[in-house]
Design a binder for these strands. Structure first.
Length: 404
RNA sequence: GCGCCGAUCGUAUAGUGGCAAUUACACGACGCUGUAAACGUCGCGGCCUAUGGCCUCCGGGGGUUCGAGUCCCUCUCGGCGCA
């Protein structure tokens, strides 16, 4: 008996999209929904109260980070993630699978899990030999991590990840997977995919063997397969046939074929369980992902770019540090109903950022998260109101700026 | 008046014969997609027939030298000391 319950309220005509509700032990998530990332049991620069006011329905923390600091046992002792961080709504933890990528293939390199379709990384002939220094060593059974904090080594297996996630105690946990680099050739993607599938099976059975935790926590399996249709479909079939409560879609895409890759996967996955597109969350990406059947999205982008001075507006992103905003006394995004836009000007934010004042991070994060969360809520409404396509067109027409 | 020290990109600095010249901050721009991230990258004298070339440049003037931010003389300004 799964601790979560997913119901589809309305389907989008002639596509895989849907609006629904996901009931969890800490309350309901109306889907599609954006999930703010609170890696170390905090969404950086924001209090849980601010998160609630913004409209966040769920947050995602990270197994690897909490294991290292302050330690999953301590989180358990504190009463679990929700109690520890004073968050009363639903919670999730990522399994650490992303760190296999970010501390591994991506370590020290200018590489992102999403690359442009014309990126040289995708060309066979430009691929480098995998010999650069990383903090990760993958083997059949698990992954050796070298802590980015103090250099100590830690071995993660699927069982270890699940144990840690049980201690942390989020409502939804993820199977331990290997998030691959988009620069990996298809042969490696296949090898990694088989490993991820074996690890999924082990994650699931280890979770279900712990009856007490399995009663309170649900587990999502993760689909991989890079940008290859056959691998993606194989993965969706394999993971979809396992008894997971929901699914995560992970790994690397070419930006341009993300919609297609998501469509490959979601056309194979059982439709009665929620699908979480891991790590995706730029506005222009959300429409396609929702249209192609994804229900949940987490992404660091809104909060990270906020702290670095980029703000979403209905006309695209702006860099508030640009000289043109120094004397701009209009709100960051005029018409926006968030606390920041209701009370502060671009000039003030520009000042806070230039002065490196800590409030800059908070006000910018409030705005960007509100922007994205509200965008997804409005997409949801547009599905219920049957005007998704009109809403999408109107939004993107304004948002995708015509650059020169 | 005498002596000593100092003057280099907006600011603070590095540089004791090969230098368009170090570093930091500031400034300008860009990037960030399951957070190694309040971070990172690039630019910051001018011009061009521009992965190279030319001109100008380290308070002013003069000198030594193949070559001077660097050595010498002198002036200006500033600091300190002695009168």
């Amino acid at each position: 008996m799964s601790p979560i319950k997913f119901t589809i309220e309305k389907k989008l005509a002639k596509s895989l999209g849907r609006a629904g509700r996901l009931e969890t032990p800490h309350g309901v998530i109306e889907t599609p929904a954006f999930v703010p990332v609170g890696t170390k049991a905090t969404v950086k620069a924001l209090t849980p109260k601010q998160l609630e006011e913004i409209g966040a329905e769920v947050v995602l923390s990270n197994t690897y980070h909490l294991y290292l600091e302050p330690g999953d046992e301590l989180v358990k002792e504190a009463g679990g993630l929700n109690k520890f961080m004073n968050w009363s709504r639903p919670s999730m933890t990522d399994s650490g699978g992303f760190q296999v990528f970010s501390l591994g293939a991506a370590y020290g390199k200018n590489i992102s899990k999403i690359v442009k379709g014309d990126s040289p990384l995708l060309l066979e002939e430009s691929r480098e030999i995998r010999d650069h220094l990383t903090l990760v060593d993958i083997d059949h059974d698990g992954v050796m991590f070298k802590s980015n904090i103090d250099g100590s080594t830690h071995y993660f297996t699927p069982e270890k990840s699940i144990d840690v996630q049980h201690n942390i105690g989020a409502d939804i946990i993820f199977a331990f997977d290997e998030c691959t680099s988009p620069a990996e050739p298809v042969g490696y993607q296949k090898e990694a995919l088989d490993r991820t599938h074996r690890w999924a099976r082990r994650s699931l059975s280890h979770h279900l063997n712990d009856a007490e935790n399995a009663q309170n926590q649900s587990i999502f399996g993760i689909i991989q397969g890079g940008r290859h249709e056959d691998l993606r479909k194989e993965s969706a079939k394999t993971i979809g046939n396992m008894d997971f409560d929901g699914f995560g879609i992970g790994g690397s895409f070419a930006k341009e074929d993300m919609n297609m890759a998501v469509e490959w996967v979601n056309s194979v996955l059982p439709e009665d369980r929620p699908r979480h597109l891991l790590g995706i969350g730029e506005p222009e990406d959300l429409f396609g992902a929702i249209e192609n059947g994804c229900d949940l999205f987490d992404c660091v982008a809104p909060t990270r770019i906020a702290r670095n001075g980029s703000l979403y507006t209905k006309h695209g992103k702006i860099n508030i540090l640009n000289a043109q905003f120094v004397k701009d006394f209009t709100p960051p995004d005029s018409g926006c109903q968030c606390y920041t836009c209701q009370n502060y000007t671009r000039a003030y934010l520009a000042h806070l950022f230039r002065a490196k004042e800590i409030l800059a991070n908070t006000l910018a994060s409030i705005h960007n998260l509100y922007f994205i969360i509200n965008l997804v809520k409005n997409i949801r409404l547009s599905i219920l109101d049957e005007n998704f396509h009109q809403f999408k067109e109107n939004f993107l027409k304004q948002f995708i700026q015509l650059r020169e």
